[in-house]
Design a protein around this nucleic acid. Structure first.
Lengths: 158, 158
DNA sequence: GCAACATTGTTCCATCTGGATCAAACTTGC
DNA sequence: GCAAGTTTGATCCAGATGGAACAATGTTGC
């Protein structure tokens, strides 16, 4: 069986949606994770956290988890790395002594400009097969899936 | 800012497609990976490999990589685990002494029945927000993205 | 007021990960 | 025929991962 037919067949089974989404994401992650690791010497979740913190000044660590569903200690380590690199600063919360409010530094914002630029160009790269209308439709449907109540809390995989 | 507005905002930026797809996949992985690890005591790539081997009897390890873009040693370990559990057997290739042809055992096929069933129900769970027509459209668009030449080989993230 | 419980974020540690290296088998060029 | 290069898959190892336990703080119920 030829290589193309392998994919054709796997994208025709009862798990075709799972298979095609996994394929896209595993393929993209291989490219993206390696690049971010090599270029910025940080894991992807650190760059994600910086992106979120810059966009929402004063963000709390627990809120980063709502944006990027990752284990708690993963966020904790990413934040610690960003602080060590002086890309963000932590500030004690007035209202809750456990919380730390996070803010990007000028250096962090500067690094983000490059990070966002290359990520946007990478996004255009994997979305290239879609027309603008298709791209819009794809986003709307993905948005619907993201808003589903069972995405994060399953009843069949307990 | 409320929790919902955090997501609303992050899904409205210049990286919205990346953000929404990441959100779906990170969220689904948290559920799925933990379940497969706990229920079947194997990493996700081992179950993926078993799925591929059952579907394509005599598959080679390198071909699994085309279906599931993962590092080569990851596949090698997954295959070794499946063989140790007697879920697959390896058979020397006639034409190439380096290759091993992989075949599911009866036990492997039996386990797959349950794996596929729960995975299909999980798939229905995260696709639930979409109508049948939307689901079909989503699949077609994802299929297009998967077939793009720059998904696996970037020119902007070298 | 305070005991029981919940939440936030950090640390510990066994396990996993993936880039690099390796050995074996195959292919190419001459 | 064979040296150089390639392909296939296994192994090594430094560093990452995530579940669990933890400390500190806040909330609830009485």
């Amino acid at each position: 069986m030829s290589d193309d037919n392998l994919l054709e067949t796997i994208f025709a089974g009862e798990l075709k949606e799972l298979m095609v989404v996994s394929y896209i994401v595993l393929g993209n992650n291989a490219v993206t994770n390696r690049f971010i690791e090599r270029r910025f010497r940080m894991p992807v979740q650190a760059w994600s956290a910086l992106y979120a913190i810059e966009r929402f000044p004063g963000l709390r660590a627990k809120e980063i988890r709502q944006l990027f569903p990752r284990p708690q200690n993963t966020i904790s380590r990413a934040v610690a790395l960003l602080e060590k690199r002086k890309l963000i600063v932590q500030e004690a919360s007035d209202s809750d002594g456990r919380e730390k409010r996070l803010f990007a530094t000028d250096e962090g914002r500067k690094l983000l400009v490059e990070m966002i630029d290359v990520s946007r160009r990478r996004q255009d790269e994997w979305l290239a097969p879609l027309s603008p209308e298709e791209r819009s439709t794809f986003f709307d449907l993905a948005r619907k899936i993201a808003s589903g109540p069972r995405l994060l809390s399953s009843t069949v995989m307990l």
